[in-house]
């Protein structure tokens, strides 16, 4: 057995100093590493996307080739071109949808690609390949064409971390517009197979909420604008103590399949930010 070496004591000291740093300074220190890793993360994510598309393409070609060996090469080439065009068409449609969504909502939206997920496994966050250089600020809402995804919690020049709705530390002021019932939506940390992904808490017990009712951001607190679709009510139960109701919420956006997202830059008339 060896004796404790001083190098680990120095390491412990370094760790203590880093942990004792104010959060603002720690975020600043994290930024250079994130910026160095950004091209690597972005590049490898793109390679993986392409690989996945290629595997899907090859599978398609393989099935076709089995049916007609004589024309294999010609069919393969045509299929390859077709798949490429289909991919372009899908991408085109997505971008058109995003443009229409921008016009519809009245918000200024910044498109961004999801380049990574949180590494420790505890938090439900994703990293996007757009940062302060594109005007993204801490606290900005992040959406897809389906609905709210989460909010920006850390920003560097080219990247931003988005805390997803499904995380228990994500508190989103929400309202059920049908009955004007206010509450707070927070994540449960559970995968969809094991229970509701989100819950709306502190809902007045007299509020009449039905399954399928829309839940949107309330704009209270002034962080997120009002009117962003969060999800739909799934089940309404009485909270402990009987003072409030608790609503299980199904997020409108698919949080497990995020490839492109939109960051709400600022409100330009479509919704009101801040309290009401």
């Amino acid at each position: 057995m060896r004796r404790w070496t001083p190098r680990y004591l120095v390491l412990a000291l370094v760790a203590i100093i880093l942990l004792a740093l104010p959060e603002r300074l720690a975020v600043v220190l994290k930024r250079p590493v994130r910026e160095v890793l950004y091209p690597v993360q972005s590049g490898t994510t793109r390679i993986f996307h392409r690989l996945r598309e290629t595997v899907a393409m090859v599978r398609g070609i393989g099935g076709l080739a089995a049916r007609n060996r004589k024309l294999q090469s010609e069919v393969a080439w045509l299929r390859l071109r077709l798949r490429q065009l289909e991919r372009l068409e899908t991408e085109n449609r997505k971008l058109r949808e995003m443009l229409r969504f921008t016009a519809r909502t009245g918000y200024d939206l910044i498109p961004a690609e999801v380049i990574g997920r949180e590494a420790s496994g505890w938090w439900s966050t994703v990293r996007i390949g757009a940062g302060s250089e594109k005007g993204i600020q801490r606290g900005a809402a992040v959406v897809t064409v389906d609905g709210l995804v989460g909010k920006v919690v850390e920003v560097s020049a080219h990247t931003a971390d988005v805390l997803l709705l499904s995380d228990p530390s994500a508190y989103i002021p929400a309202v059920v517009p049908k009955c004007e019932a206010y509450g707070i939506v927070k994540g449960t940390g559970l995968p969809p197979e094991m229970g509701p992904t989100c819950e709306m808490e502190f809902v007045h017990r007299e509020a009449r909420i039905a399954t399928g009712d829309e839940i949107i951001t309330s704009g209270l607190g002034g962080v997120l604008p009002r009117g962003l679709l969060i999800g739909y009510a799934e089940q309404v139960t009485e909270a402990e103590g009987g003072l409030y109701q608790r609503v299980a919420v199904t997020p409108a956006a698919n949080l497990d399949a995020l490839t492109y997202v939109l960051v709400v830059e600022r409100v330009s008339g479509g919704g009101s930010s801040g309290g009401q």
């Binding site: 390491l11 740093l21 890793l37 590494a119 805390l163």
Partner: peptide
């Protein structure tokens, strides 16, 4: 680098990796 990739406070993984290393 681990802390920069995750949402953990800076220095947390340094401490944990250091402890495991020791």
């Amino acid at each position: 680098v681990q802390d920069s990739l995750s949402f953990t406070p800076l220095g947390f993984s340094v401490a944990m990796f250091g402890l495991m290393g020791a």
